[in-house]
Protein backbone atom coordinates (compact mmCIF):
# COMPACT_ATOMS: atom_id res chain seq x y z
CA UNK A 1 0.00 0.00 0.00
CA UNK A 2 1.18 3.52 -0.76
CA UNK A 3 2.58 5.20 2.34
CA UNK A 4 1.87 8.92 2.44
CA UNK A 5 3.20 11.13 5.20
CA UNK A 6 1.40 14.24 6.42
CA UNK A 7 3.66 16.75 8.14
CA UNK A 8 1.98 16.84 11.56
CA UNK A 9 3.68 19.75 13.33
CA UNK A 10 0.62 22.03 13.12
CA UNK A 11 -2.40 22.53 10.88
CA UNK A 12 -5.25 20.59 9.29
CA UNK A 13 -3.45 17.24 9.31
CA UNK A 14 -6.64 15.28 9.92
CA UNK A 15 -8.42 16.55 6.78
CA UNK A 16 -5.48 15.60 4.53
CA UNK A 17 -5.21 12.21 6.21
CA UNK A 18 -8.94 11.49 5.72
CA UNK A 19 -8.72 12.35 2.04
CA UNK A 20 -5.63 10.18 1.50
CA UNK A 21 -7.25 7.26 3.33
CA UNK A 22 -10.27 7.68 1.09
CA UNK A 23 -7.87 7.25 -1.86
CA UNK A 24 -6.59 4.01 -0.36
CA UNK A 25 -3.31 5.26 1.12
CA UNK A 26 -1.73 4.31 4.39
CA UNK A 27 -1.16 7.62 6.20
CA UNK A 28 1.75 8.39 8.55
CA UNK A 29 1.79 11.59 10.59
CA UNK A 30 5.35 12.95 10.32
CA UNK A 31 6.86 14.74 13.32
CA UNK A 32 10.21 12.95 13.60
CA UNK A 33 13.10 12.22 11.28
CA UNK A 34 12.50 8.46 11.46
CA UNK A 35 8.93 8.93 10.19
CA UNK A 36 10.26 10.54 6.99
CA UNK A 37 12.09 7.38 6.00
CA UNK A 38 9.25 5.08 5.09
CA UNK A 39 7.02 7.36 3.04
CA UNK A 40 6.40 7.42 -0.74
CA UNK A 41 4.99 10.96 -0.75
CA UNK A 42 4.44 13.84 1.67
CA UNK A 43 1.71 16.42 2.28
CA UNK A 44 2.44 19.72 3.98
CA UNK A 45 -0.95 20.80 5.37
CA UNK A 46 -2.68 24.12 5.75
CA UNK A 47 -1.88 25.97 8.95
CA UNK A 48 0.40 28.78 10.02
CA UNK A 49 3.54 28.62 7.87
CA UNK A 50 5.69 30.59 10.32
CA UNK A 51 4.82 28.11 13.09
CA UNK A 52 5.46 25.08 10.87
CA UNK A 53 8.83 26.53 9.83
CA UNK A 54 9.89 27.09 13.46
CA UNK A 55 8.90 23.58 14.57
CA UNK A 56 10.61 22.04 11.53
CA UNK A 57 13.85 23.67 12.61
CA UNK A 58 13.40 23.21 16.36
CA UNK A 59 13.04 19.43 15.97
CA UNK A 60 15.86 19.07 13.37
CA UNK A 61 13.47 17.94 10.65
CA UNK A 62 14.35 20.61 8.11
CA UNK A 63 17.64 19.18 6.79
CA UNK A 64 16.42 15.57 6.40
CA UNK A 65 13.27 16.88 4.70
CA UNK A 66 15.32 19.02 2.29
CA UNK A 67 17.35 15.94 1.49
CA UNK A 68 14.30 13.83 0.67
CA UNK A 69 12.75 16.63 -1.38
CA UNK A 70 16.05 17.00 -3.22
CA UNK A 71 15.96 13.35 -4.20
CA UNK A 72 12.49 13.75 -5.71
CA UNK A 73 10.02 12.79 -2.94
CA UNK A 74 6.57 13.65 -4.35
CA UNK A 75 5.09 16.45 -2.23
CA UNK A 76 1.83 18.41 -2.04
CA UNK A 77 1.49 21.63 -0.06
CA UNK A 78 -1.79 23.48 0.52
CA UNK A 79 -1.88 27.13 1.65
CA UNK A 80 0.83 27.19 4.37
CA UNK A 81 2.21 24.16 2.52
CA UNK A 82 2.51 26.23 -0.68
CA UNK A 83 4.47 28.83 1.28
CA UNK A 84 6.74 26.13 2.70
CA UNK A 85 7.49 24.77 -0.81
CA UNK A 86 8.41 28.17 -2.28
CA UNK A 87 11.96 29.23 -3.05
CA UNK A 88 11.28 32.85 -2.08
CA UNK A 89 8.71 34.46 0.18
CA UNK A 90 7.16 37.94 0.26
CA UNK A 91 5.56 39.15 3.53
CA UNK A 92 6.90 36.35 5.70
CA UNK A 93 7.75 37.01 9.34
CA UNK A 94 11.33 38.01 10.18
CA UNK A 95 13.70 35.12 9.54
CA UNK A 96 11.05 32.80 8.09
CA UNK A 97 12.57 30.05 5.94
CA UNK A 98 11.08 27.95 3.15
CA UNK A 99 12.05 24.64 1.56
CA UNK A 100 12.57 25.80 -2.04
CA UNK A 101 11.12 22.74 -3.79
CA UNK A 102 9.42 24.94 -6.40
CA UNK A 103 11.30 27.84 -8.09
CA UNK A 104 8.62 30.43 -7.32
CA UNK A 105 8.04 33.47 -5.16
CA UNK A 106 4.92 33.23 -2.98
CA UNK A 107 3.19 36.17 -1.32
CA UNK A 108 1.91 35.24 2.13
CA UNK A 109 -1.65 36.39 3.08
CA UNK A 110 -1.91 37.81 -0.48
CA UNK A 111 -5.70 37.62 -0.63
CA UNK A 112 -6.05 39.57 2.62
CA UNK A 113 -7.34 38.89 6.11
CA UNK A 114 -9.96 36.37 7.28
CA UNK A 115 -12.88 38.66 6.32
CA UNK A 116 -11.57 38.36 2.73
CA UNK A 117 -11.34 34.54 2.87
CA UNK A 118 -13.67 33.09 0.25
CA UNK A 119 -14.93 30.23 -1.86
CA UNK A 120 -14.12 30.75 -5.53
CA UNK A 121 -14.91 28.91 -8.77
CA UNK A 122 -11.69 27.89 -10.56
CA UNK A 123 -10.70 26.16 -13.75
CA UNK A 124 -8.44 23.11 -13.21
CA UNK A 125 -6.13 23.63 -16.19
CA UNK A 126 -4.90 20.02 -16.63
CA UNK A 127 -8.31 19.01 -18.03
CA UNK A 128 -10.24 22.29 -18.24
CA UNK A 129 -12.81 21.14 -15.69
CA UNK A 130 -14.25 23.40 -13.00
CA UNK A 131 -13.01 23.26 -9.42
CA UNK A 132 -14.27 24.89 -6.24
CA UNK A 133 -11.47 26.54 -4.26
CA UNK A 134 -11.62 27.47 -0.57
CA UNK A 135 -9.16 30.27 0.16
CA UNK A 136 -8.36 31.10 3.80
CA UNK A 137 -5.97 34.01 4.37
CA UNK A 138 -4.48 32.54 1.25
CA UNK A 139 -1.17 33.17 -0.50
CA UNK A 140 -0.63 33.36 -4.27
CA UNK A 141 2.30 32.78 -6.60
CA UNK A 142 3.85 36.16 -7.28
CA UNK A 143 6.30 34.91 -9.92
CA UNK A 144 7.89 31.66 -11.04
CA UNK A 145 10.64 30.26 -13.25
CA UNK A 146 10.05 28.65 -16.63
CA UNK A 147 9.11 25.04 -16.19
CA UNK A 148 6.64 25.69 -13.37
CA UNK A 149 3.26 24.55 -14.71
CA UNK A 150 0.26 26.66 -13.64
CA UNK A 151 -2.71 24.41 -12.74
CA UNK A 152 -5.19 27.13 -11.72
CA UNK A 153 -5.43 30.92 -11.40
CA UNK A 154 -7.69 33.27 -9.43
CA UNK A 155 -8.38 37.00 -9.42
CA UNK A 156 -6.84 38.88 -6.51
CA UNK A 157 -8.13 42.04 -4.81
CA UNK A 158 -5.74 43.88 -7.18
CA UNK A 159 -7.92 42.77 -10.11
CA UNK A 160 -5.11 40.68 -11.66
CA UNK A 161 -5.10 36.91 -12.07
CA UNK A 162 -2.48 35.01 -10.08
CA UNK A 163 -1.43 31.37 -10.12
CA UNK A 164 -3.03 29.53 -7.16
CA UNK A 165 -2.04 25.97 -8.08
CA UNK A 166 1.27 24.93 -9.62
CA UNK A 167 3.30 21.83 -10.38
CA UNK A 168 7.07 21.54 -10.79
CA UNK A 169 8.95 18.25 -11.06
CA UNK A 170 7.49 16.11 -8.24
CA UNK A 171 5.94 18.98 -6.26
CA UNK A 172 2.38 20.38 -6.33
CA UNK A 173 1.25 23.44 -4.40
CA UNK A 174 -2.20 25.01 -3.99
CA UNK A 175 -3.12 28.31 -2.34
CA UNK A 176 -6.56 26.86 -1.58
CA UNK A 177 -7.62 23.88 0.55
CA UNK A 178 -8.71 20.82 -1.49
CA UNK A 179 -8.57 18.82 1.76
CA UNK A 180 -11.64 20.54 3.23
CA UNK A 181 -13.68 19.87 0.09
CA UNK A 182 -14.87 16.53 -1.23
CA UNK A 183 -12.75 16.96 -4.37
CA UNK A 184 -10.05 14.29 -4.62
CA UNK A 185 -8.39 15.51 -7.82
CA UNK A 186 -5.48 17.42 -6.26
CA UNK A 187 -4.56 14.55 -3.94
CA UNK A 188 -4.92 12.12 -6.84
CA UNK A 189 -2.50 14.30 -8.82
CA UNK A 190 0.02 13.84 -5.97
CA UNK A 191 -0.42 10.07 -6.01
CA UNK A 192 0.07 10.10 -9.79
CA UNK A 193 3.59 11.47 -9.20
CA UNK A 194 4.69 8.41 -7.22
Amino acid sequence: MTQVGVLALQGDVREHALMLEQLGCDVTPVRRVAELGAIDALVIPGGESSTQDKLLRAFDLREPLLERLGSGLPVLGSCAGMIMLARDLVDGITGQQTLGAIPMTVRRNAFGRQVDSSEVALVWEPDGSSMHGTFIRAPWVESHDDGVEVLATATGPDGDRHPVAVRFASAIATAFHPEISADIRVHQALLDLI
Binding site: S118, E119, T134, I136
Partner: peptide, 16 residues
Protein backbone atom coordinates in the same frame (compact mmCIF):
# COMPACT_ATOMS: atom_id res chain seq x y z
CA UNK B 1 -18.03 34.57 5.27
CA UNK B 2 -19.32 31.10 4.39
CA UNK B 3 -19.48 28.31 6.99
CA UNK B 4 -16.62 26.60 5.20
CA UNK B 5 -14.22 29.55 5.35
CA UNK B 6 -15.21 30.33 8.97
CA UNK B 7 -14.87 26.78 10.27
CA UNK B 8 -11.97 26.13 7.89
CA UNK B 9 -9.99 29.00 9.43
CA UNK B 10 -10.18 27.20 12.80
CA UNK B 11 -9.05 23.95 11.17
CA UNK B 12 -5.84 25.72 10.13
CA UNK B 13 -5.13 26.73 13.74
CA UNK B 14 -5.20 23.12 14.97
CA UNK B 15 -2.20 21.83 16.85
CA UNK B 16 -1.28 25.43 17.59
Amino acid sequence: GTDLVKRGMAEMLKGG
